[in-house]
Design a protein around this nucleic acid. Structure first.
Lengths: 241, 241
DNA sequence: GCATAAATTAATCTATACATTAAAATATAC
DNA sequence: GTATATTTTAATGTATAGATTAATTTATGC
């Protein structure tokens, strides 16, 4: 493959800084956001198929920008483009949830450990504490969906403290991939007071500069979280969600 | 956004198992592979622009499948699609290399640690040792490019030992993202005997079940690797590559 | 009634025409 | 000569027509 000489143009900020739907055309971006929201809101279910033409009609555009959005969504691991059959919502098995859980635990523990060793960690800890306070209020108010969203913000804020853009994008995507299952099972779980306490304890350890303790608390909480989810999924008797 | 009822079809293996260019149409897949190879082979450079029509002509297809391939490549972090300007090869700064390095170090250390605790690790250690032996032979033969490829296989094999598909894809992509810089600076580095020794030592520690020692060796080698690269880039006086 | 071949259908895949946009070039005023 | 307005150009963004493919349905032979 031979090319004419590539043109060099002044360096401009990359579009990749944006976390999702990055570098897509205007219609493709809208399609990306709308289809993604439909998936994350559990309006469709794992294993189900959608047809391109029907999706295009639903989002009010031709198939060309929609297809570009679908390539992005497939890359995010939310859908599969099945040749000549349609768009399949990626079914999530308990193994998938374990994979995502393991990765998040590994990456978050690195972020927590790194934060515990930073001299200027007080600001970050303060911001994280504010999120936990909000989580407590939402739990008391009975707003479990709001609590889950705040919990996601906590995790993303913790990860952001590592100052690594690629890490942030990876974690945000992992949260997206597991969102359908986490939301589907949310009301079947015990009230997440254990998570609130674990976050509080982890932040105290970070504040004290005790990275190993912070990591130990994080790992224990995440293990308990996964065990409860596995129990729920076993009780549901579903191979995938 | 409202949809007709989604069709449910028998569960078939997802296309996402494939590591790259997954779920793309035949022409899009070919475009993906060819353009990616062009980028990874340093036939274009960071900051340079390419035009869609010229690329389409070069790969011998219309813009439609090419554009789908470009969405995938952008998601891989290899190019940026700049609206109404063209495709830009993502410029890599030393900060980018640090990010990738940090992430790989975190993820690989998890994999190494996990492997060191597995009772059935002998088989994996054996496979990894074979790769290191090949790396030694290639170094003696003066084939530094072959050595670098074998080194990548070592890292991917180590990561694969964790049995986490998402981890593998993430790491493969991180290796891709840093490839242009690593290959560009390859011959400016000292002969990588330190890396060969580090791999050997790490495998011995894993074999002995000493995860912490394995991780310590891995971290030390990666730190030295990065320091040498930073020195080279500073000597080159380039803001990005 | 069953197996296989042939025809039909459904849906994507790809090419390309046309619309749109933003940069570049040119014209104009001072 | 410079600043601003206007026009032109280059390249993408989007819609859709037609090609292609694979699944489904129907026809045929035994």
């Amino acid at each position: 493959m031979t090319l004419p000489s590539a043109k060099v143009v002044p360096l401009i900020p990359p579009t990749r800084g944006r976390t999702a739907g990055k570098g897509l055309t205007p219609l493709a971006e809208r399609a990306y956001r709308e289809v993604k929201q439909m998936v994350l809101d559990n309006r469709v279910h794992g294993g189900e198929y959608l047809l391109e033409e029907e999706l295009a009609k639903a989002v009010g555009m031709s198939r060309t920008p929609l297809r570009e959005a679908l390539v992005q969504l497939q890359n995010d691991g939310l859908i599969d483009i099945v040749p000549r059959r349609g768009i399949r919502i990626v079914p999530l098995t308990v193994e998938d949830i374990r994979e995502v859980h393991d990765l998040m635990q590994w990456l978050e523990s690195q972020a927590a450990y790194a934060l515990a060793t930073r001299p200027d960690r007080a600001e970050r800890v303060k911001a994280l504490r504010q999120i936990v306070a909000q989580m407590r209020r939402l739990l008391v108010a009975g707003d479990i969906t709001g609590w889950a969203k705040a919990n996601d913000r906590f995790h993303m804020e913790l990860v952001a403290s590592a100052g690594n853009g690629r890490l942030e994008r990876i974690c945000e995507n992992l949260l997206d991939q597991s969102q359908r299952v986490r939301m589907f099972t949310l009301r079947m779980r015990k009230p997440p007071t254990r998570t609130n306490e674990a976050h509080t304890g982890m932040l105290r350890a970070i504040e004290e500069g005790d990275g190993e303790k912070a990591v130990a608390i994080q790992i224990a909480n995440k293990k308990a979280w996964l065990a409860e989810l596995e129990e729920i999924i076993e009780r549901l008797q579903l191979r995938y969600l």
